[in-house]
């Protein structure tokens, strides 16, 4: 599983301030830190409080690329901002995200085809997040069929089954795991899967252990990527261990270290 480092996000105060003051330093520090900690992608999100999302996204992409060479994951519901970001990305990037709603899929998949970008697709439609695995998988199938119709390789599509905080949506847990497993049967090659890891622990007091355990369980169901805290060393070690147990990486005594430094 690949970590999409979550830290360059305007929801965090230091990043919001950096965007306001056009100070690249905090952004670049987090870019380097996450890369060294083992992130495979860097999530880029301008946050809720920005007035001009288009120029903020463009600036974030540019300054991040000066500090790190790993690919970016442009995270916004404002597709103009994403498109502006894609235009300045040096390497193919990932779009985060699109729900299974026709006009949005049209916009995002067209953009993805143009920029050779990967896409995170959300297993939700007009009616929001479904309750059970079956409905989630049906929406995933919509994403797969559309992705294919726009000529995008299916393995460039990451489907997010959408996890809810376990303190309020406990019943969703098993449905998420089941969805992850079934998504792998939708096509050959199958789409990849991604998840916003820390959603699961929102509002709880034991956030770290919940995140780590959830990561391990998801990997066992075939999860390929997660937006997560790359600087949580225990989380990275958990992921490295789960990968070895799933026979995804070749074991050696220092496997956790090898996983962490694989991009350096």
């Amino acid at each position: 599983m690949i970590i999409i480092g979550e830290r360059i996000n305007g929801m965090f105060r230091d990043i919001a301030k950096a965007i306001r003051e056009k100070d690249p330093k905090p952004v670049q520090e987090w870019a380097r830190k996450q890369e060294e900690a083992g992130a495979g992608y860097l999530d880029i999100n301008v946050g809720p409080a920005v007035s001009d999302r288009v120029s903020a996204m463009k600036w974030l992409v540019e300054v991040t690329q000066e500090a790190s060479k790993i690919p970016l994951c442009l995270d916004s519901t404002d597709y103009d901002a994403i498109e502006a970001g894609l235009e300045v990305c040096k390497e193919p990037a990932m779009i985060n995200s699109v729900p299974a709603i026709p006009d949005k899929m049209d916009r995002v998949f067209t953009m993805a085809a143009k920029f050779n970008a990967e896409v995170i697709g959300l297993a939700m439609g007009e009616e929001g997040i479904p309750k059970d695995a079956e409905s989630r998988v049906a929406l995933a199938m919509e994403l797969v069929a559309n992705c294919d119709a726009y000529g995008i390789p299916i393995d460039s599509l990451y489907i997010d089954p959408l996890a809810l905080p376990c303190n309020v949506g406990q019943a969703h847990g098993p449905e998420v795991f089941e969805t992850l497993r079934q998504i792998k049967l939708l096509s050959d090659p199958p789409p990849k899967t991604a998840i916003g890891l820390s959603n699961i622990s929102q509002g709880t007091k034991e956030r770290e252990i919940i995140n780590r355990t959830f990561a391990a369980m998801c990997i066992a169901c075939g999860l390929d990527a997660a937006v997560a805290d790359a600087c949580d060393e225990e989380l990275v070690a958990t992921i490295a261990t789960a990968r070895v147990l799933m026979n995804l990486d070749i074991f050696c005594d220092s496997y956790a270290e090898v996983y962490r430094t694989r991009n350096l």
């Binding site: 070749i250 074991f251 050696c252 005594d253 220092s254 270290e257 090898v258």
Partner: peptide, 10 residues
Amino acid sequence: DINIAKQLNI
């Protein structure tokens, strides 16, 4: 032994 091969490099 592939695991030792990898570890030895490290």
